[in-house]
């Protein structure tokens, strides 16, 4: 069942930055399904060789199945659009991150997915440093 959708009226949009696989969509769409796979390495000093991750398939986080909530309820929806316009004066966004969407307009289906693996590398033991500082 396709419910008649409303028009969207936005006077102005200001977006400072968009990250990988981030989307700004102006206008109607049918479906939005962005996916992002991020392998983030943080080092105590910014020394990088560029070959930190050669093959992401060795990590299960990028292939494991994400369970979706089962939709079993049978819902019969009737939507009456008395005023078929959504009005927004302005939109001011600093950042649109990976696998995220700013969408002005109507759509049918939105399915977003992001998989982030974060690695922190220290050149000295941060816990050891903490025990030295403590007054005990």
């Amino acid at each position: 069942m396709i419910i008649p959708s409303r028009a969207s009226l936005v006077n102005w949009i200001r977006v400072a930055s968009i990250d990988l696989a981030g989307t700004v969509q102006i206008g109607d769409s049918n479906q939005i399904t962005p996916e992002a796979q991020v392998y983030a390495v943080q080092r105590e000093l910014p020394i990088f060789n560029g070959d930190e991750a050669k093959d992401l398939s060795e990590f299960p986080i990028y292939s494991q199945e994400i369970p979706l909530p089962p939709i079993t309820e049978c819902v019969e929806q009737i939507t009456i659009q008395e005023n078929p316009v959504i009005k927004v004066g302005g939109i001011d966004i600093i950042g649109v991150a990976a696998s995220s969407v700013l969408h002005v307009g109507s759509t049918q289906r939105i399915q977003l997915e992001s998989r982030v693996k974060n690695i922190r590398e220290f050149f000295s033991d941060p816990n050891e440093d903490k025990s030295n500082i403590s007054p005990d």
């Binding site: 991020v38 927004v88 991150a97 995220s100 700013l102 109507s106």
Partner: peptide
């Protein structure tokens, strides 16, 4: 910020 795997929608879905 619109963080990872999130959506701002001005419209219907």
């Amino acid at each position: 910020a619109v963080a990872s795997s999130s959506v701002v929608l001005i419209g219907d879905t």
